[in-house]
Design a protein around this nucleic acid. Structure first.
Length: 354
DNA sequence: TCTGGGGTCCTAGGACCC
DNA sequence: TCTGGGGTCCTAGGACCC
């Protein structure tokens, strides 16, 4: 038997959950984002396929979405509903004979020993449909990278397989940005070096990219283009490295007394999440996005790791004091970082797959 | 087009130490 | 005078993902 990695991705997950409880929306363009008012600041969380056909996609400002698709149904984000649906899906996956790694509300990796990964993929789709009435697509690969990339070719509600054998015939001529972890910025820098496609990146000497992208990312780019990835599927419980809260104001705030009050409020909310996590925080980071969309951060280590609201709030105020400009503010954020795993002296950090 | 909120990991540069 | 060679820790920012 062979070890296969399967990547499960729910189709238009958030929009699908909304349509399930409002059947009259089926077949209509549905856009979920913000508080459901497309005149306000906010972006699209998920658009139904009908809305996507009109140019509406995740991350698009709601104000742009309503212009492109004025007859769409706009709905507010209802986290609790998506968390409940997600929990049902993940529970169904965990009852299969596989290692399951949850990657968010609507995604998971499975690792399984099987000679028929397509049969397992079909079983996954069937179980999820039976238990949640949701459709998913499944990618099959010899590692997480291949499985993740394969899923896109299976959408909607299909299955697609990538292997070391088929990697280049499927992806070789695709732009480097098609890869998982390569975004617009990196693609543009690669293009500046004469590297446009996955195949071109795969042919590049990893060492040649170190001066441009650093000792970790440079070689990682080439390995990724070759369809190689050391990252293993793990079912170890997720342990957040940090927890945070941030808010974009509907109108910019120019009163810095109000800024301070908001930071205090956010800090206390974060402290509640720190307490819930059951581990003390080691640092507090304050984020300020000024009205022209320039973002800055400042941090304060806690003298000793702490969870108490007072201490996290005081650290947040301390970090806020490092901001010298008193311009109008568009966004404020507070994040608490937990102490990292105690690393033995001289031991390098474990290489992660990004 | 006027750009959310939740995160993760990596890089570069300065401080500091031996 | 005109200047080493590591190594580690810390901070701010960047890029990316869901």
């Amino acid at each position: 038997v062979t070890r296969w990695v399967l990547h499960v991705d729910l189709d238009q997950f958030i929009a699908a959950v909304e349509v399930l409880r409002r059947p009259e929306l089926r077949g209509r363009p549905v856009v979920v984002g913000g508080d459901g008012d497309p005149a306000k600041r906010g972006v699209v969380a998920t658009a139904s396929y009908e809305a996507r056909a009109r140019g509406v996609h995740s991350g698009l400002p709601l104000r742009t979405a309503v212009r492109r698709c004025p007859d769409a149904v706009f709905l507010p984000v209802d986290r609790a509903a998506y968390e409940a649906a997600s929990a049902q899906v993940m529970s169904a996956l965990r009852r299969l004979d596989a290692v399951v790694e949850v990657m968010g509300w609507d995604e998971a990796f499975l690792a399984a020993e099987t000679d028929d990964p397509h049969a397992l993929a079909s079983l996954i789709q069937q179980r999820i449909k039976e238990e949640t009435r949701l459709d998913c697509s499944v990618g099959i690969g010899q590692n997480k990278l291949q499985a993740k990339l394969a899923t896109g070719y299976g959408k909607p509600a299909g299955v697609f397989q990538l292997t070391h054998q088929t990697w280049f015939e499927v992806l070789g001529d695709e732009p480097a940005q098609a890869l998982w972890g390569i975004g617009a910025k990196t693609a543009r820098r690669l293009a500046g070096l004469g590297i446009g496609t996955v195949a071109e990146l795969a042919r590049t000497d990893p060492a040649a990219l170190v001066p441009h992208f650093g000792p970790a990312i440079g070689p990682w780019l080439v390995q990724t283009a070759r369809g190689l990835s050391p990252s293993q599927v793990t079912d170890e419980p997720y342990q957040p490295r940090s927890v945070g809260k941030e808010i974009t104001f509907q109108q910019d705030i120019d009163d810095w007394e109000q800024v301070r009050a908001e930071i205090g409020r956010l800090a206390r909310l974060v402290a509640a999440d720190v307490v819930a996590e059951g581990r003390p925080a080691a640092r507090v980071v304050v984020k300020v996005r000024y009205a022209p969309f320039f973002t800055h951060t400042h941090r304060r280590p806690l003298a000793t790791p702490a969870s108490a609201a007072e201490e996290i709030e005081q650290a947040a105020f301390g970090a806020l004091d490092d901001f010298t400009s008193r311009r109008a503010v568009r966004l404020l954020g507070v994040r608490a970082e937990f102490a990292g795993p105690a690393r033995t002296r001289g031991e390098p950090p474990e290489a992660a797959g990004r």
